[in-house]
Design a protein around this nucleic acid. Structure first.
Length: 886
DNA sequence: GCGCTCACG
DNA sequence: ACGTACGTGAGCGCC
């Protein structure tokens, strides 16, 4: 045994994964020549990781030579189902090879052979010479090479998250030896390489057979003795295929590789090649690591920012500036309804001003400037700044660009919501993320003034920098309208709603608190008595001890930490012990008491109103979310909880709560997007869509024949369709067998054939583009659509189907909100829009305006966009939110 | 800070 | 064969 360590990298597989791991930044990673660099970048990251972790003495990156290999000669369809390689990827391959040379790493390819075979051959050769070998790949097939000396690292997610297969790990994971992996592949085939194996044999059956028979050969030698079964028949009829698959799955460890181990010595970075290459590729961060400047002529690229203190003498300079100014309103707490402003910063094209004195906001000329719509401004998070300044008596207007909103539209995934991190991803490294500057948790603190001012100055500069980058990218994504006409105006509308808040009557909540408290006491006593002892009912751990150990009930479902005690489980156990019903009841009441009664009481502001914050840049679909408190999940389904809504009341006694909601907006969006004539007709004729669906999938002639149960199932199926259906999910939801559910889905697609086409099309689109879009071009990237892991991939596929539907519905209500706010102003109505709950808008209004709203709100909502089917809106009003129900 | 449970559309 | 419905937030227990 010698001290040599050889790392063998599966070049194509890692490069391809690198490409998709960073697919969401594909257009961001482009150099001056228009060459995409995302795969090169991620590949180089992986190299750094391997080099520092494994410290190889020798290294080789193997590539596939071309489409035809000895395997395609054996089996013409080998890898025949691979989609066309995107050109954005292929263009990067030569550069990856150039990069390898510059990093002192040998690369190699061999006509008629795959990278696998080169790796297999070199791994075995090196092993004989006593080398330690590490193979890095995205393909689990290579684990067949694993021995005591050969470790195979397979990518889990991206390219830097690796799972290391040693003989022990392999055994643990699959329960067979690495050599037996070939036989397993022979039996189960390989979808991605497009060879068949034995019909109906997958991993489970394959492993069982191998554990029993040891090898493919032995299995077939003893096949006659197997008792008759479908499996046996398949094994018999597919024998030839199985042995062909075995040949295809076997890595050639004696390929005619013209390489000597001595050629593979890792030479280290060749700086005279590497530095110009990094510069050509725009790889600042890698140059930084080498302590080499990106631009040799400008060593001082990260110079400190010169700023002036904003005070009575410098204020006129700011106010007289004619160029756009970036604005920073600094608060360190999240909740901008209450957080003090600890600093202000402004940057024009020539000058930066900062202050840690919010008292400046008392200055009339300053306020005038902030409010002047003709003074162009750029910000990071308009809504936050607007609400905070409003508390200080200042109005912010003239905002042309919001960096946070822009970055959210470009990539909903990248939601760090931090200016420093955002600036960094766009190549501006002069600003620390807030979490690093201020610290977090208990260590969070405001540094001394000079540092703070410096930080604020950098923020103002970073906003200006991003403003030069993001708008162009929004245009490239065709998202300028989405930004300018929807998200930015909506931020203003939401700010108004949040500032207004909604009145919540504490006396009603106190009354409930007392009543619920008594009920909880009663239930608690009953439960303790039946359990024979006292315990914390809120602890699922203690509860599961009582139920499944002391009382001997049968656990039906496990969680990561123990037995589940969820509603789903408890409902099934309800009849077996009376304690179960009491626990369910207790849970329900306890939830209302702690989350809603207590939670709401805690969040009533001194003005008697509750001011939520809508997060506009959080969800992956374009919906809003609501926090501190969440007013989008106030109980509605059961009357017991719904009573909470009695506490949501209008500002005055002679006012009312008015509510309008879209009926089945998501299904209507689906009918529009899919173009399905049957579904469109149902909406155009204003049929009961769930009953109509029931009639169709149950093959009835008349809607009158539809029973309530049929309608219930059809309704669940409609929901399932919107979520990206699976037979398993549907079966679980409506309590039927999987086969039945599968038949349901089949007849659903027979009845709505274009819906099926739409679903397939969305998945296809996600595969080709890497993302899906809503009607307003809101975009969501789905890198996992290419995952080898079934779960990750399936999830991405369902997301591809669901996001355009949920997201387009979100687009629609956002447009309606903007139009609605405009109408309320134009008509000089006293009515105020208070809340949005995804497909519902809630207002407070004087009684005499209710008839106006009853016409106006539905009209605005159903005309927000023009779809191929009508949008339907229902309204209601009453003395509280509880009473505003149809 | 994470997992569980449960509230909403 | 695999094992889940899509999108959220909050309170609690536990460590």
């Amino acid at each position: 045994m010698n001290s040599k360590k050889l790392v063998l990298v599966d070049g194509n597989s890692i490069a391809f994964r690198a490409f998709f791991a960073m697919h969401n930044v594909l257009e961001k990673f482009k150099n001056a020549d228009g060459l995409h660099t995302n795969a090169i970048y991620a590949f180089n990251n992986m190299l750094d990781l391997i080099l520092s972790k494994s410290k190889p003495t020798d290294m080789l990156v193997a590539f596939d030579a071309g489409k035809t290999t000895f395997r395609t000669k054996m089996y013409a369809d080998y890898k025949g189902n691979r989609p066309h390689t995107p050109s954005e990827f292929s263009e990067q391959l030569p550069c990856i090879k150039e990069l390898l040379t510059a990093r002192g790493i040998k690369s190699y390819e061999l006509a008629n052979y795959e990278a696998d075979d080169i790796i297999g051959t070199m791994a075995r050769t090196a092993q004989k010479q006593g080398y330690q070998v590490v193979v890095v790949t995205g393909d689990r097939d290579l684990t067949q090479l694993v021995t005591d000396q050969i470790t195979v690292a397979v990518t889990i997610k991206g390219v830097s998250d690796l799972e290391f297969y040693t003989p022990e790990h392999f055994q643990e994971k699959l329960g067979i030896t690495p050599e037996q992996l070939i036989d397993l592949k022979a039996l189960m085939g390989d979808n991605s390489d497009n060879y068949p194996g034995v019909t109906k044999v997958g991993e489970k059956t394959g492993l069982k057979l191998l554990k029993q028979y040891g090898s493919l050969e032995n299995l077939y030698a003893n096949l006659d003795m197997m008792k008759p079964s479908k499996l046996k028949e398949h094994l018999q009829s597919d024998q030839e295929q199985a042995f062909l698959s075995k040949k295809l799955a076997t890595i050639d460890t004696a390929a005619p590789v013209q390489l000597d181990l001595a050629d593979l010595a890792y030479a280290g970075d060749q700086e005279e090649q590497l530095i110009p290459l990094y510069r050509k590729l725009n790889f600042r961060s890698f140059l930084d690591k080498m302590k080499v400047p990106f631009d040799p002529n400008h060593m001082e690229s990260q110079q400190q920012i010169n700023y002036q203190i904003l005070d009575a003498t410098t204020l006129p300079d700011l106010i007289e500036t004619t160029t756009p100014v970036s604005v920073v309103v600094e608060m360190i707490e999240d909740n901008y309804h209450t957080a003090p402003i600890i600093g202000l910063a402004f940057a024009s094209s020539e000058q930066v001003w900062v202050s840690d004195d919010a008292g400046l906001l008392a200055d009339a000329s300053f306020k005038q400037w902030l409010q002047d719509a003709a003074k162009a401004k750029y910000v990071f998070d308009f809504k936050r700044d607007y609400v905070a300044l409003h508390r200080y008596g200042a109005i912010l207007d003239g905002v042309l660009f919001d960096v946070l909103l822009g970055s959210y539209l470009l990539d909903v995934n990248d939601n760090s919501n931090d200016l420093g991190s955002l600036a960094q991803t766009y190549g501006y490294s002069g600003l620390l993320p807030d979490i690093e500057f201020y610290g977090k948790g208990a260590r969070k603190a405001v540094p001394q003034s000079a540092q703070l001012l410096e930080h604020l100055a950098s923020k103002a500069a970073a906003i200006r920098y991003l403003q030069t980058k993001l708008p162009e990218q929004l245009r490239q994504h065709d998202q300028d309208q989405l930004f300018e006409e929807i998200e930015l105006p909506l931020a203003q509308v939401l700010a108004d709603m949040e500032i207004d808040g909604v009145r919540v009557d504490p006396t009603i909540l106190y009354k409930m608190q007392n009543q619920l408290g008594e009920r909880l006491q009663q239930l608690q006593n009953d439960i303790y008595q039946q359990a024979g002892k006292e315990f914390n009912i809120n602890s699922s751990q203690q509860l599961s001890k009582i139920l499944f150990e002391d009382l001997g009930l049968k656990p039906l479902k496990k969680t990561k930490t123990g037995y589940s005690t969820s509603v789903e489980v408890l409902e099934k156990l309800r009849d077996q012990a009376p304690i179960v019903a009491d626990i369910l009841n207790y849970r329900q009441v306890a939830k209302i008491q702690s989350t809603y009664v207590g939670g709401l009481l805690n969040s009533i502001a001194p003005d008697g109103r509750v001011h939520t914050r809508y997060l506009q840049t959080l969800t992956q679909t374009g919906r809003l979310s609501s926090v501190d408190p969440n007013l989008q999940n106030i109980p509605a389904r059961l009357d017991e909880g719904r009573k909470i809504r009695q506490a949501f009341v209008p500002k005055q006694a002679d006012w009312e709560i008015f509510s309008s909601d879209y009926s089945q907006i998501e299904l209507r969006v689906l009918a529009h997007l899919s173009g399905d004539q049957n579904m469109q007709q149902a909406f155009k004729e204003n049929y009961d869509i769930h009953a109509h669906t029931a009639m169709r999938i149950f093959g009835l002639d008349d809607i009158a024949e539809v029973t309530p149960n049929m309608r219930r199932k059809a309704k669940a199926t409609n929901f399932g369709i919107v979520y990206g259906i699976s037979d398993y999910g549907l079966a679980k939801n409506i309590g039927i067998s999987r086969t039945e559910a599968a038949q349901f889905i089949q007849s659903y697609f027979d009845q709505y054939p274009d819906v099926k086409k739409y679903m397939d099309q969305m998945v296809q689109l996600a595969r080709e583009n890497g993302y899906v879009e809503t009607i307003m071009h809101r975009r969501r990237y789905l890198p996992d659509i290419h995952a080898r892991n079934f779960n990750l991939r399936s999830f991405a596929e369902r997301t591809a189907m669901n996001t355009p539907i949920q997201g387009s519905a979100a687009d629609i209500i956002k447009i309606a909100m903007i139009n609605m706010q405009k109408q309320l102003r134009q008509r000089d109505l006293k009515a105020r829009m208070l809340l949005q709950v995804h497909d519902e808008l809630i207002f407070e209004a004087p009684e005499d305006e209710i008839p106006i709203l009853e016409k106006l709100v539905p009209q605005i909502m159903d005309s927000a966009v023009q779809l191929d089917v009508p949008l339907k809106v229902s309204s209601a009003h009453g003395k509280s939110w509880y009473d505003a129900k149809g």
